[in-house]
């Protein structure tokens, strides 16, 4: 499968354009890195590709087709701040199962402890919450994952452990990854190819 963004232009308001004619494509057997300055519009591009922003110019297609908006979206975004993506009045079990019910094996691979499931989101650390976000995104219907600085709050060891688990799961299930990060060393290790955001954005 191929996820393709073509000639994307976008601005939040008239004053400043954020994206101009951005194009990139990504195969489901690939892991592509994206690196760029803070505030340059990487997260904005991620949101457009994952269907969170709709009033942009250009097109995002999956194997040449427009992605339907009503059902489960095959391109899943994992956010930088997991706590904002969880209803504060929901227990973690409900948070996790909103998307699908992962196997015990998968929960173990990502180091998700069973006693976290009965807690509220504000009773877990950012790194612990991020494992839930990742697992939620790994729904069997997911074809691509966009990881927007998902490991900035983790220590080096956990970072490696989580990326290892994510990559092996995605390789086995033919899921493509777009990985955004400030950390070139991390991208060197995990990605097949690295894109410079400044180079693909024609501002």
């Amino acid at each position: 499968m191929e996820l393709k963004a073509e000639n994307i232009s976008f601005s939040y308001n008239k004053k400043r354009q954020i994206l101009k004619d951005v194009s990139l494509s990504l195969n489901s057997n690939q892991i592509i890195g994206l690196i760029g300055d803070s505030g340059s519009g990487k997260s904005t591009l991620c949101k457009i590709m994952a269907g969170y922003i709709s009033h942009y110019k250009g097109s995002v297609t999956l194997d040449g087709n427009k992605i339907p908006d009503k059902d489960f979206y095959p391109v899943q975004l994992i956010f930088q701040h997991p706590e904002k993506t969880m209803n504060p009045k929901w227990k973690m079990k409900k948070v996790l199962n909103e998307s699908w019910t992962p196997t015990q094996d998968l929960k173990d691979t990502f180091g998700l402890k069973d006693n976290w499931l009965t807690r509220w989101p504000n009773e877990l650390s950012g790194g612990e919450l991020q494992r839930f976000s990742i697992l939620r995104a790994l729904n069997p219907k997911t074809k691509f994952i966009i990881a927007d600085e998902i490991s900035t709050m983790l220590d080096a060891v956990t970072q490696v452990q989580i990326w290892d688990a994510l990559i092996s799961h995605c390789r086995a299930n033919d899921i493509g990854i777009l990985a955004v990060s400030h950390d070139p060393e991390l991208l060197e290790v995990v990605c097949d190819d690295i894109l410079m955001f400044n180079e693909i954005n024609n501002l």
Binding site: G51, Y52, D71, Y73, L77, F79, K84, T85, E98, S99
Partner: peptide
Amino acid sequence: SEYVALSKRFGKSKLWIAKEH
């Protein structure tokens, strides 16, 4: 909020979101 936006990406209906979220 982001959790409602995410819920829509999971394919949940407006009614479901109103009731559960």
